[in-house]
């Protein structure tokens, strides 16, 4: 039966990792385009509130998920107008988005606190889902999980295999040079910001529709910040986001299990694990860095104003 226990643990790890993956992949695309969006937490929590509210009203999880993504996108649009359109400071604007998102989500979700609804439906393939060990793991997840994995592949393919992805990476590396070549720096950045916001909103909707599933104020509990750290941890590569999200998800689950098992370690120490892992990864990355070039998109966080 140990296989089933392992499988169960893995299922919970994946559940904890899914929102991190979705939000991180979105932010990865934003940062690859050269924009630092510190508003992920706010977009995520607004997505959670809006997603839950719309799902309760319509009774459709899908509509809730779409609304969550839409709410994240709307807040990202505001962020994009400020930072990409008006060249406002990205750090300050991002922090403002987080505060705004937390406030707005309280407003949107006020009427829905304490309501319960059924979690997002899980895939159920007769025969396959009931397979011992791997059945639940492979064929019994909800739609968000499959989407998150597809998103890893999609973002990887987009960045490294398409012309638009190349353009986006080039803009994140040097906006002056790419502008001089006639590439649409601000247009690409704005679209990347919208994509990142939609991903953050969707990740939030996963929390309120599938993970818990209910709405509570500030329920994201810092996952947006973990998603940001994860992008750095993954050194801006989608496949490493997958690995990092599992590690962070694993640490979260481990902490719950350790507390349940009454382990001597304080829960706070275990909660700090993902962050310690990030610091360690950053140190290792900078120790083993290449002779030249940079890991991070070179234009990250620098604003761009074309003069015309």
């Amino acid at each position: 039966m140990s296989l089933d226990i392992l499988s169960m643990v893995l299922v919970t790890i994946i559940a904890a990792a899914t929102p991190l993956m979705i939000a991180s992949l979105g932010e990865l695309v934003v940062e690859r385009a050269g924009v630092l969006n510190l508003g992920v937490e706010g977009m995520m929590v607004l997505g959670a509130a809006t997603g839950f509210a719309v799902a309760v009203e319509t009774g459709s999880t899908l509509a809730g998920a779409a609304a969550g993504a839409g709410a994240g996108l709307a807040l990202a649009a505001l962020f994009g107008i400020l930072t990409v359109g008006l060249s406002a400071n990205q750090v300050a604007s991002g922090l403002a988005m987080t505060i705004l998102g937390l406030g707005l989500s309280g407003l949107v979700g006020a009427a829905y606190v304490g309501l319960k609804r059924a979690p997002a439906p899980h895939l159920n393939v007769p025969g396959l889902t009931d397979l011992p060990g791997i059945g639940r793991l492979l064929f019994g997840q909800d739609g968000f999980v499959y989407f998150a994995f597809a998103l890893v592949a999609g973002v990887w393919w987009f960045l490294w295999r398409t012309r638009a992805g190349l353009t986006l990476r080039a803009i994140g590396d040097d906006h002056t040079a790419t502008h001089a070549l006639g590439l649409k720096v601000r247009k690409v950045r704005f679209r990347a910001v919208l994509f990142g916001g939609a991903c953050a909103g969707l990740a939030g909707a996963y929390l309120s529709l599938a993970y818990t599933p209910f709405w509570a104020p500030a329920m994201t509990a810092g996952r947006g910040w973990i998603a940001l750290a994860l992008v750095v941890f993954a050194s801006w590569r989608p496949l490493r986001v997958l690995a990092g999200a599992m590690l962070f998800g694993g640490a979260t689950v481990l902490q719950l299990h350790a507390q349940a098992a009454g382990l001597g370690l304080p829960g706070q120490a275990l909660s700090a694990l993902p962050y310690l892992a990030t610091i360690l990864a950053l140190v290792l990355l900078s120790l083993g860095r290449r002779q030249g070039g940079s890991l991070a998109p070179a234009a990250l966080g620098r604003d761009f104003t074309p003069h015309r």
Binding site: L166, A170, D173, D174, A177, T178, S294
Partner: peptide
């Protein structure tokens, strides 16, 4: 007008 972290071929593409 070259991106330092891209390859020669990518910059031309």
């Amino acid at each position: 007008s070259l991106c330092e972290n891209l390859t020669v071929a990518e910059n031309i593409a």
